Computed example of a mutant assay.
Amino acid sequence: MQKRDLIFRVLYFLLIFSIIVILNSCDDANKVSVDERINMFFSDLNAGKTSTLRGDHISPKSSDYSTINSAFWTASVWVNIPFSVNTSSIPDNSTVTVSITHDTASGLLWTFYMDEDDDDFWLIRGIDNELGGELISQ
């Protein structure tokens, strides 16, 4: 009988441990750092996913949120694909400046204004660059 109790206790412990691990891994799945968000934004822009850029990457708090649609991405600087991020290890701050290269310019400084929607879930609220000024209003 004692052996059976020991097996039951070990199985109970493993079940509780598994539940804790699963719940903790779910939290990490909902986290997007500033670095990840900016790189995912440019990856989707380069891939032509203009119909989902606003919903996936732009904060609803952005002044331009309601006017951003698929046509928005076909104007001005956004057509200069492919874009690449030259800055590595972008910190989780509400304002970050990164170096961007696209088909007509290299090493341009772009400033991203970020919103942290949930704990460690960052979205883009606004974007400025050194040439064109405000690209997405905060």
Rank of each mutant, 00 (worst) to 15 (best):
M1N: 12
M1S: 14
M1D: 09
M1L: 13
Q2Y: 13
Q2G: 15
R4E: 15
D5T: 12
L6R: 13
L6K: 14
F8K: 12
Y12C: 14
F13D: 03
I16P: 03
F17A: 15
S18G: 15
I20S: 13
V21L: 13
L23V: 15
L23Q: 14
L23S: 15
N24K: 10
S25Q: 13
S25E: 11
N30G: 10
N30D: 11
K31V: 02
V34H: 08
D35Y: 08
E36L: 08
I38H: 04
N39E: 09
M40Q: 15
F42V: 10
S43I: 08
D44G: 02
L45R: 06
L45T: 07
N46H: 06
A47H: 05
K49M: 11
K49T: 01
K49V: 03
T52M: 08
T52L: 09
T52I: 13
T52N: 12
R54G: 05
G55N: 11
H57G: 03
H57C: 02
S62Y: 05
S62H: 02
S62I: 05
S63Y: 08
D64W: 05
D64G: 01
Y65M: 07
S66R: 09
N69R: 05
N69E: 12
A71D: 14
F72S: 02
T74L: 14
T74H: 11
T74R: 15
A75V: 04
A75M: 09
A75K: 15
S76K: 09
V77T: 10
V77D: 07
V77C: 04
V77M: 06
V77H: 09
W78G: 04
N80F: 05
N80I: 00
I81F: 00
P82I: 04
P82M: 02
F83Q: 05
S84V: 11
S84L: 07
T87H: 00
T87G: 03
S89G: 02
I90T: 06
D92A: 01
N93D: 14
S94R: 14
S94Y: 07
T95K: 07
V96T: 05
V96L: 03
T97N: 08
T97D: 06
T97F: 00
V98S: 03
V98T: 01
V98G: 01
V98R: 01
S99E: 11
S99H: 02
T101C: 00
T101E: 09
T101R: 03
H102P: 01
H102G: 01
D103H: 03
T104A: 09
S106C: 03
G107T: 04
G107F: 07
L108T: 04
W110H: 11
T111E: 08
F112G: 01
Y113G: 03
E116R: 01
E116P: 02
D117T: 07
D118A: 11
D119C: 06
D120W: 02
D120Y: 08
F121K: 10
L123E: 10
I124L: 06
R125C: 08
G126Y: 04
G126K: 08
I127V: 15
I127M: 07
G132C: 05
G132M: 07
G132Y: 12
E134M: 07
L135Y: 00
L135A: 04
S137R: 12
